[in-house]
Nucleic acid binder design. Sequence first.
DNA 1: GGTGTAAATGGACGACTGTCCATTTACAGT
DNA 2: ACTGTAAATGGACAGTCGTCCATTTACACC
Lengths: 216, 216
Amino acid sequence: MTQNKRDISRERNRMALIEAALDCVAELGMANTSVSEIIGRSGLSRGMIHLHFNGKAKLMEAAIAHSSDLYYEALDRLLEQAGSDASPQARIEAIVRSDLSAEVLNTRSVRIWYAFRGEAHNHEIIRLYSDTRHDRLRKLIYQPFLAIFREVGADDPAGVARDVTHGTLALMEGMWTDFLLHPDSFDRDAACRIVFRFLAALCPQHFDLPGAREDG
Amino acid sequence: MTQNKRDISRERNRMALIEAALDCVAELGMANTSVSEIIGRSGLSRGMIHLHFNGKAKLMEAAIAHSSDLYYEALDRLLEQAGSDASPQARIEAIVRSDLSAEVLNTRSVRIWYAFRGEAHNHEIIRLYSDTRHDRLRKLIYQPFLAIFREVGADDPAGVARDVTHGTLALMEGMWTDFLLHPDSFDRDAACRIVFRFLAALCPQHFDLPGAREDG
DNA sequence: GGTGTAAATGGACGACTGTCCATTTACAGT
DNA sequence: ACTGTAAATGGACAGTCGTCCATTTACACC
């Protein structure tokens, strides 16, 4: 068998350390995440971090990688169940709704994400994962926008799609920040509505929200 | 005289500690900002932090307060020179341009801001200053939007203005994040253009950018 | 100039940090 | 059941953390 009782135990302990580290970051922040805290939460012994990761720094790198994986998995799951053969506007809507859903955007995930990013300039790896995540989301949303602006015969569909993609990502980023600072009063529906109101104004034929454009 | 040589020296040292602390946060992040580092940068002696602030925690609180003041001052200065008797759309434009200008948004300021906010949930004071800053910006931008949507006779001008204000702030927030992660490749003009493109789509009569709306 | 008082110094202090290794434990293969 | 090997333990270790205070310095007032 490829999975010994040993290997299973090893892998389980490895993951326990990563999860404990992420819990720690979410609750206490980067500054207060110590080896002792992580060990205490995992219930394992002190030497495990050095054994599995060769030090705290490498553990944190594994933690950011895992955190990124969790984000992708949740996003993919939601997008898959939304259907991939939908219209461009439906795909964009699904992405926005997924990115702002409770499964992807919650207290734990947002705190971890901002804690890591607050230290991005000190750790190459964090920047790398941050960029990868951003690029992937950008590509996912750029294609449908490009299709839309080609369809309506825009002068420079690629340019417009690029700008609108950039703006839409910035909008979602801002909504994440809102959630970080006020998780209790945050209104997911309102956040979606505002994003769609902006998109409806930019392409009323595709996101036909009544009253999106109040002027003109 | 109200300002002794002593008082001046005292105040100068106090500020030196705050500035050193902010430099530290900007360069090393919250996690690596230690008393020793701050002292080293300020050139003062170890006991000064306890003497002036009664501990590191209080010094950091003073630092976030000072950082917030710097933001307001720079923003006010730019808005004042833009003129306050301008049209609603000109005022909004001035706010957006100021918030994305080099004076307000630079490597130091953005790193400090995100470092503090990454730990917001641990420190009541940080959340307080973050909220205050956000509220102030929101009010500054809400009024002109309200004027615009009243002027065009929107069904629910207050509601629309609220949503558009929310979205515009989120957009700017997203642009700040872009700058944090890629200060070298960040394009201020492009960032402004994208914000205005979105606003032009929402109210074409007021932000008449050619080609803002490609569809409809 | 002498004196009182506040500012400033810098080292001592215990607590805690992350690393690492000698030891123990437990599973896999024979 | 025995043995070899990898996993896991938990304490020792040097280094750094933030706090605090006895001492020195320097200014303001008389």
